[in-house]
Amino acid sequence: MSGRQPLWLLMLLLASAALLGLGLAIGSTGWSPWLGASAGDAAMQLILWDIRAPRSLGAWLAGALLALAGAIAQGLFRNPLADPYLLGCSAGASLGVALLLFCVVGLSPAATALALRLGMTGAAFAGAVGAVLLTLLLARGVEQTLRLLLAGVIVGVVLGSGSALLTLMNPDILRAMQAFMLGSTGYVGWSAVQIMAATLLLCLLLAQGCARTLDALSLGEATARSLGVRLAAVRLLLIGALALATGAAVAQCGLIAFVGLVAPHLVRSWGPCTHRALLLLAPLAGGVLLLAADVLARWVIAPQELPVGVVTALLGGSYLLWLMHRRPRGLGVAR
């Protein structure tokens, strides 16, 4: 890192710590400070450490995963508008959840609740990874970027139509599908936190290992090949990291918009940086963004709660519109 990047790293870490503390203090009843909570208050301790703590950590981790996936996608496809869902992950996850809900509807309430609790995460993850594999199959590998993009669009449209058809055939699953589509961190527990933390560490190591290749790729494929970069192998590794990070976040929190697109742009707006710095700062920024949105979603209309995906869409969309207006080249848009 160079220039002001260590300062931004410190500020993001401090913001993360502050928001985690704030996340412990805000729940369904609004503001309830945790610093003065009695150690003998079993109910408050349960709320703090079994509900609010994993939810807050899970929101941060999901935001970091989506931002890392977004930074990888933008570097890999050399497209500033690339996001984690570019290869059909979101449509595949939606179809997986829709299939699960379609199959369990009609069971007893207890059986349905158990099936959803055990299976929705796995269905979403399997659907997301399956969609990426289908995209790679249609694109005939990873050699041609344009084929990958087109295949991702086709897979997204087709699988999205499939989930819409299942919902139309059985309207009873509409409410559960709507909750998944809008995103929620309300069901994140400690097991989900552990899964996302392990996934983030693995994907971050893979991405950092390919950071110099992304720097070379930003100069063009011909330049990268002239520098001895094995593009096919690197693309396969990066697509694997992209799919794993996106699938893990979507499986635990549903579809959350704009975090993976906005966080890398936010880091780039602070000044020029290599992909090694970007792939470290973007996850921190994504974690801060999603955790801040989650805290806001809990607080703004307490005791009710807004879907966190709605909050990120409003904030992220507003930021991108402002960025397009103030810096037309910031999104690769030329006048």
Rank of each mutant, 00 (worst) to 15 (best):
Leu146Thr: 15
Ala91Gly: 10
Thr29Asp: 07
Leu99Glu: 05
Ser108Ile: 01
Gly36Glu: 08
Trp60Phe: 15
Ala111Asn: 08
Gly141Ser: 08
Leu137His: 12
Gly75Glu: 12
Val142Tyr: 00
Ala139Trp: 08
Trp49Arg: 09
Met44Gly: 02
Ala62Gly: 11
Ala42Cys: 01
Asp41Met: 09
Leu86Val: 11
Pro33Leu: 02
Gly40Asp: 14
Ala126Thr: 04
Ala115Phe: 11
Ile154Leu: 15
Gly63Lys: 04
Ala37Lys: 02
Ser56His: 03
Thr29Lys: 10
Ala42Trp: 15
Ala42Asp: 15
Gly36Met: 02
Glu143Leu: 13
Arg117Lys: 07
Arg117His: 14
Pro54Trp: 15
Ala151Val: 13
Asp50Phe: 13
Ala113Glu: 08
Gly70Met: 05
Ala124Phe: 05
Cys103Thr: 04
Gly36His: 08
Leu150Cys: 11
Leu134Glu: 04
Ala71Ile: 05
Arg147Pro: 10
Ala42Tyr: 12
Gly130Gln: 07
Ala73Thr: 01
Leu76Phe: 09
Leu66Asp: 08
Ser28Lys: 05
Ala71Asp: 05
Leu133Thr: 08
Leu87His: 10
Trp49Ile: 07
Ala123Phe: 12
Ser56Gly: 03
Thr29Leu: 14
Gly156Ser: 15
Asn79Glu: 12
Leu134Met: 15
Gly58Arg: 01
Ala123His: 07
Arg117Trp: 12
Ala93Phe: 08
Leu87Phe: 13
Val142Lys: 00
Gly58Ala: 07
Phe102Gln: 02
Ser94Trp: 13
Ala37Ile: 05
Arg52Tyr: 14
Cys89Lys: 10
Ala62Ile: 04
Ala42Lys: 15
Ala43Ser: 11
Leu46Lys: 10
Arg140Gly: 06
Gly30Leu: 05
Ala73Gly: 02
Ile26Asp: 01
Ala113Arg: 10
Val105Arg: 01
Gly70Lys: 01
Pro84Leu: 07
Leu35Gln: 14
Trp60Asn: 00
Pro84Ser: 06
Ala43Thr: 14
Gly92His: 08
Ala39Gln: 07
Ala124Pro: 00
Glu143His: 12
Leu138Cys: 12
Gly92Gln: 09
Leu87Asp: 07
Gly63Ser: 06
Leu68Met: 11
Leu76Glu: 09
Gly30Ala: 02
Ala39Lys: 04
Thr112Val: 10
Leu146Cys: 04
Leu134His: 06
Ala110Ser: 06
Ala62Trp: 06
Ala128Gln: 09
Leu48Gly: 02
Ile72Asp: 06
Gly27Gln: 09
Leu101Arg: 00
Trp49Asn: 02
Thr135Glu: 14
Ala67Ile: 04
Asp50Tyr: 14
Trp60Leu: 15
Leu148Phe: 12
Ser28Pro: 00
Arg140Ala: 15
Leu146Pro: 00
Thr121Ile: 04
Arg147Asp: 14
Ala37Ser: 14
Ala131Gln: 10
Ala42Gly: 04
Asp83Val: 02
Asn79Ile: 01
Gln74Val: 05
Val105Thr: 09
Pro109Thr: 10
Ser108Asn: 03
Val104Gly: 00
Gly36Pro: 01
Ser94His: 14
Ala128Leu: 09
Ile154Asp: 13
Leu114Phe: 10
Ala91Asp: 06
Ala123Cys: 11
Leu35Met: 11
Arg140Ile: 13
